[in-house]
């Protein structure tokens, strides 16, 4: 009530205040900014500790849980860079994740086209089913998948694991791909249609070239997800020589009682490099559009 009775007085007061205390206010904003910067930097330093530890431990000959390295050494890397420890698990991972990603991306491009272009009564229910399955915890279906794979003799088979990885990544892949495809204008397509091109030709010659960035995003996203996936190969593969890096890290940790933390760190770094590189590519490609903004561009 008091406010409505004298609106002008109320509005003028802060105006005058601001002019009078303009200097202190600016100073307060500046100190606020310094406080914000300082607290973010302290926080980042804390956040960085585990990562830093990994880098330090990988060049530490004694492999202890300490944040110091008296004399850096490349021994840990030299010890693990052999077929059994590093090359084969990395290759297995590359085969399974690469194959799974390829399959997933091809299937989702194909599936996204009708979902994006044609109207049908089944379209909405199908899309909702896809969206629903992106939320399902894959962890929970692994036991029935295991039993199923035992029955059809797909257990401990790399192709079987690849297929399952592809299927598990498919809902999210289709959803993303469909959204990217929605962004490609219909006009060009219609012209090609009039010239007699069929759906597959249109998809291959016109739609795909216009949505390469989207396809790359889905590809990288899918691959990163599979590369880090531990539970699926952990359950579906048994033979040590078939395990990808995500599981062999783990056997590393449990196999020896005296775990070589230095070697484990070195292996973790090598195992992580591909996804970190891919993420950098992704972030750069998506630029400002991915809310990362200037983060990685500096």
């Amino acid at each position: 009530m008091a406010v409505t009775s004298s609106p002008r007085a109320v509005r003028v007061r802060p105006e005058a205040d601001r002019q009078a205390v303009g200097g202190t206010r600016r100073r307060r904003v500046a100190t606020g900014r310094i406080a914000v910067n300082a607290s973010l930097l302290v926080f980042s330093a804390l956040y960085l500790v585990p990562l830093l530890w990994m880098l330090l431990a990988s060049v530490n000959a004694h492999g202890s849980f300490k944040l110091t390295v008296p004399s850096p050494t490349g021994d840990n890397f030299r010890q693990i860079l052999n077929t059994d420890t590093t090359y084969r698990p990395m290759l297995n991972g590359l085969l399974m994740c690469g194959g799974g990603t390829l399959l997933c991306v091809v299937c989702s491009v194909l599936a996204a086209y009708p979902l994006s272009r044609f109207r049908s009564r089944l379209r909405r229910p199908f899309l909702y089913t896809i969206l629903f399955s992106t939320g399902l915890p894959i962890t929970a279906v692994m036991i029935p998948v295991y039993s199923m794979f035992v029955q059809v003799n797909l257990i401990d088979s790399m192709p079987g694991t690849t297929l399952f990885l592809a299927a598990a990544a498919l809902p999210f892949g289709i959803w993303l791909m469909k959204n990217f495809m929605d962004g490609v204008p219909l006009v060009l397509e219609e012209a090609a249609r009039i010239d007699g091109a069929n759906a597959m030709q249109v998809l291959w010659r016109i739609v795909l070239p216009l949505m390469w960035p989207g396809v790359i995003v889905v590809t990288i996203f899918t691959f990163i997800g599979m590369w880090g996936n531990f539970f699926v190969p952990f359950i579906l593969l048994l033979s040590p020589e078939k395990l990808p890096a995500s599981v062999s890290v783990f056997t590393f940790l449990s196999a020896h009682d005296q775990t070589q933390y230095g070697q484990l760190s070195a292996f973790s770094i090598i195992y992580s490099i591909p996804v970190v590189m891919l993420y950098l590519v992704l972030a750069r490609r998506l630029g400002g559009g991915f809310a990362l903004g200037g983060a990685l561009k500096g």
Partner: peptide
């Protein structure tokens, strides 16, 4: 925050996120 601080913070936080799950688990164990 200022731009460099923002870049540092988000890089560090995202780095922890991009690392494979098992590596993150091992680092947290350490």
């Amino acid at each position: 925050a200022t731009r460099p601080v923002r870049a540092v913070t988000s890089t560090v936080v995202i780095a922890a996120w991009v690392l494979p799950e098992v590596v993150a688990g091992y680092l947290m164990y350490a």
